[in-house]
Design a protein around this nucleic acid. Structure first.
Length: 271
DNA sequence: AGAGGTACCTGGCAGC
DNA sequence: TGCTGCCAGGTACCTC
């Protein structure tokens, strides 16, 4: 479900409901996520004041007066704001109750997500330490990207999806960005020119910014904090479009696999 | 060091 | 209808 635009859409959806509020209670119904939810987390969070809701890579950072709650949505996680009581469903693993009666509800069928605490208001958690630059920041630029790619033999798509290279580019937007830049996903990262990396940097920034503007991509049941879907799905050029005509040249879109992940590209436009 | 594979988990769907 | 196998938006960790 969530790539960076979906996480950012979620952040924007929940932030107004959380900022400035005090946490009344945390209810953990299922602690077995990617890492077990710490048994003391409920006690740690009780009475904390939420200062802001920010994001690093695909981690949501709930900043409080005493530390930071890190939430990752994994493959199938989502967060919803509830303004009235609703009986929890099978996969509604965690509720964060606020002092105004609002509940932040975490749902995650596959349980690849995470709820972690760091007693550090700058959120320097080990998981965040080795991450590459944010794709929409100036730190992610042609020079950085090109230099880092030299000598690398892996497919450019895998290079692009490696969070040490740049964060937030998942399987959907990797295919989409490579299509826009006209680069074949299987091409070795180290054998692509500086000029073409310039095009790829622009494509990544554009595709992510557009997806955020449209509220993310809804493939199955993604929704922002208020249950609304994302509309970027309508803008997908190649992802999931196997056999359909390329919007530029009408050649049928092809599907292949790059390190175990589905990859979509136009064999005519991408080299 | 780099590259590739494995693992975590459930639900949905195609094919028989 | 029911079973089996495969696929899914992520990513830390392991081995070679």
């Amino acid at each position: 479900m969530p790539e960076l635009p979906e996480v950012e859409t979620t952040r924007r959806g929940i932030e107004p409901h959380l900022r400035g509020r005090n946490i009344r209670r945390l209810i953990v119904r299922q602690p077995r996520l990617r890492w077990p939810v710490a048994t003391g987390l409920a006690k740690t969070l009780q009475h904390r004041q939420i200062r802001q809701v920010s994001r690093r890579a695909k981690y949501l950072l709930i900043g409080t007066d005493k530390g930071t709650l890190l939430i990752h949505l994994g493959m199938s996680g989502s967060l919803r704001i509830l303004t009235r009581h609703a009986a929890p469903g099978k996969h509604d693993h965690i509720d964060l109750l606020l002092d105004n009666g609002v509940t932040l509800r975490y749902t995650d069928p596959r349980r690849f997500g995470a709820w972690l605490w760091t007693a550090d208001r700058s959120a320097s958690h080990p998981l965040l330490r080795k991450l590459g630059p944010e794709p929409l920041s100036d730190d992610f630029n042609t020079e950085y990207f090109y230099t880092r790619s030299r000598g690398r033999k892996l497919a450019v798509k895998s290079f692009l999806m490696d969070s040490h290279t740049v964060v937030g580019v998942g399987n959907i937007y990797a295919s989409e960005a490579l299509f826009r830049a006209g680069i074949h996903p299987a091409r070795a990262a180290g054998r692509i020119s500086r000029q073409r990396y310039a095009a790829l940097v622009e494509a990544v920034k554009q595709v992510l910014a557009e997806a955020i503007r449209q509220g993310g991509t809804t493939l199955r049941d993604f929704s922002n904090g208020e249950g609304k879907p994302g509309y970027f799905q309508q803008s997908l050029n190649v992802y999931g479009q196997t056999g359909k005509p390329c919007p530029v040249c009408t050649t049928p879109v092809r599907e292949t696999r790059t390190s175990q992940r589905s990859t979509f590209y136009c064999p005519h436009c991408q080299h």
